[in-house]
Computed example of a mutant assay.
Amino acid sequence: MPATRKLLAVLATALIAVTMGATAAAAKPAAPAPTFTNPLKAQGPDPWLTYYSGYYYLATTTWNNTITMRKSRTLGGLKTAADTLLFTLSRPNGAGTMWAPEFFLLNGPNGPRWYFYYTAGREPYNLGTQRIHVLESAGLDPMGPYTFKADLLDPQQDTTWELDPSILQLNGNLYLLGTFYNGSQPMFIRPLSNPWTANGTRRTLSTPTYGWETVGGAVNEGAEVLQRNGKTFIVYSASHCSTPDYKLGMLTYNGGDPLLSSSWTKSPAPVFQRNNAAGVYGPGHNGFFKSPDGTEDWIVYHANSSASGGCELNRSTRAQKFTWNANGTPNFGVPVGAGVAIASPSGEPAS
């Protein structure tokens, strides 16, 4: 065979091999997108979930004298992650019945630290002793170690319990959010001079007045901050947690002094509530977090799978993605049923 014809034959054979390889690659089905299912924690009331430095961190009510946390590279991995003991409560005030934990990376005197806020009362359980307390981390690990920092008691109004602490950062100032009892259960806001010190007494932020806020009891609690594109919202839980009508409402900041309730507008309808068709009841006490790549917004909350579930430890931790309306307000959609496959947050590592 002449040299030229031999070279052409070799090239043709190589081209056929390359073409066949490309065809086989194209025919290979793409790997399915990763998913997870709710619940993320079977006994997980009052969940707080944060994504930080490559991991998800989850803390929930324990209703005893311990504070625990789970850690996972993936959201679905929280389902089987171990509960790690962070702190054991042993003080006379706030020694047990730990609930509604939340942790924030805030600037302290030694630079950024995690401040872990929680509600606890004296043992044996007495609702009247429930108050808000705070721990401080030694460094930048959300799992600590932690030391006790302060009781966040209001010396001018320390006559009733306070629950469900959260933090609002707005216009360069720091505020504590919570709820208290005055016959009904309104939310309050209190200015802070640092992450553990009050700088003034509490002000009433929102009082339950709508019918959907008063099922089983007049309740506004679990205030959670959501901020985007210069807008600030407070999403809160309404009605009593013992009912399947526990749900989420929303306040919108309109400018002015955040300590004044007139600076906030309450949405006239709930923004997230029971989904009977999917078997989801009493969704509430939520938090917010970002996907690993920062492109998606997610809500974490607890809910029951039975209309008679009540305020028990069996309320389970759940999460789902939400979107935004054209007017800049959040659109939480409806609660997704347990066991339904949900696409994992964007940017998660391959499992």
Rank of each mutant, 00 (worst) to 15 (best):
residue 2 P to R: 13
residue 9 A to S: 14
residue 13 T to N: 12
residue 20 M to W: 11
residue 27 A to H: 12
residue 28 K to P: 02
residue 31 A to H: 12
residue 38 N to G: 05
residue 41 K to M: 12
residue 50 T to F: 09
residue 51 Y to G: 00
residue 51 Y to F: 15
residue 54 G to C: 10
residue 56 Y to S: 04
residue 61 T to H: 04
residue 62 T to R: 14
residue 62 T to I: 03
residue 65 N to A: 13
residue 65 N to W: 05
residue 80 T to V: 11
residue 84 T to Y: 08
residue 86 L to N: 01
residue 87 F to C: 02
residue 91 R to Q: 14
residue 92 P to F: 11
residue 94 G to N: 04
residue 97 T to G: 09
residue 97 T to Q: 14
residue 102 E to M: 06
residue 109 P to W: 10
residue 112 P to G: 04
residue 114 W to T: 07
residue 114 W to C: 04
residue 118 Y to C: 02
residue 119 T to F: 00
residue 119 T to H: 00
residue 120 A to M: 01
residue 120 A to D: 01
residue 122 R to A: 15
residue 125 Y to F: 15
residue 126 N to W: 10
residue 131 R to D: 07
residue 134 V to T: 02
residue 134 V to S: 02
residue 137 S to K: 00
residue 138 A to V: 08
residue 150 A to H: 10
residue 158 D to R: 08
residue 162 E to W: 06
residue 164 D to I: 05
residue 168 L to Y: 06
residue 174 L to D: 04
residue 174 L to E: 08
residue 174 L to Y: 03
residue 175 Y to H: 06
residue 180 F to K: 06
residue 184 S to M: 12
residue 185 Q to P: 07
residue 188 F to E: 04
residue 194 N to I: 05
residue 209 T to E: 12
residue 209 T to P: 01
residue 214 T to S: 13
residue 214 T to G: 02
residue 215 V to G: 02
residue 216 G to L: 06
residue 223 A to F: 01
residue 233 F to Q: 08
residue 238 A to Q: 05
residue 238 A to I: 03
residue 239 S to T: 03
residue 247 K to F: 00
residue 247 K to A: 15
residue 256 G to S: 06
residue 259 L to E: 11
residue 259 L to Y: 08
residue 260 L to V: 03
residue 263 S to C: 10
residue 269 A to K: 14
residue 276 N to L: 06
residue 278 A to W: 08
residue 280 V to N: 01
residue 280 V to E: 12
residue 283 P to M: 07
residue 285 H to P: 00
residue 289 F to W: 12
residue 290 K to C: 02
residue 296 E to V: 04
residue 298 W to F: 13
residue 303 A to L: 11
residue 304 N to Q: 05
residue 305 S to F: 07
residue 308 S to V: 08
residue 311 C to G: 12
residue 315 R to C: 05
residue 317 T to E: 01
residue 337 G to I: 05
residue 337 G to T: 04
residue 341 A to I: 06
residue 344 S to A: 15
residue 347 G to W: 11
residue 347 G to F: 12
residue 348 E to F: 09
